[in-house]
Write a protein that binds this DNA or RNA. Structure first.
Lengths: 169, 169
DNA sequence: CTTTATTTTCAGTATTTTCTGAAAACATAA
DNA sequence: TTATGTTTTCAGAAAATACTGAAAATAAAG
């Protein structure tokens, strides 16, 4: 294996391991990494061979990645098999991941909080008021953080991040 | 069960379910939620009873929560058992979670990227240069996002977040 | 010291998540 | 139409993760 191939392979493998720390499964992370560093779109069979995973596994994770928007199907003239390529623009990848996390993590949390806040709002006991206050504080915060993420991730340009860093120093 | 107790119970249960979506286990999320809405510190036995979990499970997750800094041991006069209470300041909770995520998610990712960037930097082929560029771009971004998180999470006050929101609009 | 209370550890078990492989569904070509 | 290539689905198997319960370790009390 060439040095280049080895580096790529190492990247794909390690990225896969990291995926677990994150909330995504190993195969999904590996496929994403593989397509990120592939100079050309790959077919399901090529991915299966490269990563030693079954067709079912490859297929499922490819569809998930497409639904996230991290990869897309491309048509290669004269070939019947589907080919896949990754979105390579770092800023776009960030926006996609940020939105997905918001959808899967902070929005459900906020929903739970809102529900409990609503149910506790008319109770009179000191303890109930304390609960109401605590949960409201949490929710205000989650909501604010959410709207910051929303705005950041809807920007076209990444030049925005350096500006934030400036505000902080 | 009183309305108040029901709301709390509901919060604890749902928060536990959310924990899985996040990268933390159900019991850990539930213990944290329980202590967050408890007006007084609780013992391991009280937590075991409240959540119907074993002593081993409760003990392990309490220690993890302490090591995160999300809860702390407190001593109750005249009692031998350890009591635990949650950090209730929302901003502090956020800072702790942000730092932990940085440590467990973005730093290892950055490490993998740096490693592959270093190994590919002297290769001459077009494809190697392409790889080097792609990974560098990813790493620049992760590093920038990291330093923003670092700065935000090191601030004493939460008044900072509204300022960021202002810059964005 | 001995006894009793409390915490920690960890082997074994249960649960959840991920993966395989083959059959079914679908699509194109002949 | 039938034959052939490709994708999707999903039941069961494998792997990873979380939990239990009891024994061992530790700490305080007598």
């Amino acid at each position: 294996m060439s040095e280049l191939a080895e580096i790529k392979d190492n990247f794909v493998t390690q990225w896969g391991a990291l995926g677990s720390q994150w909330g995504i499964n190993r195969t999904m992370a590996m496929i994403h990494a593989l397509l990120l560093v592939s100079p050309k779109p790959l077919t399901t069979d090529e991915i299966m061979a490269e990563l030693s995973v079954s067709r079912g596994n490859a297929n499922t994770n490819l569809r998930d990645l497409v639904s996230w928007g991290l990869i897309r199907q491309v048509i290669v003239k004269g070939e019947r098999k589907d080919h896949y390529e990754a979105e390579k623009d770092t800023w776009k990848i960030f926006c996609i991941v940020a939105r997905e996390r918001k959808r899967r993590e902070t929005e459900p949390a906020s929903q739970v909080l809102k529900d409990c806040i609503e149910r506790s709002k008319d109770l009179k006991s000191v303890e109930a008021k304390e609960l109401h206050k605590q949960l409201s504080s949490l929710n205000d915060f989650v909501t604010l953080a959410n709207s910051i993420m929303e705005k950041v991730a809807s920007k076209e340009q990444s030049s925005l991040l350096p500006k934030i860093l400036k505000v902080l120093s």
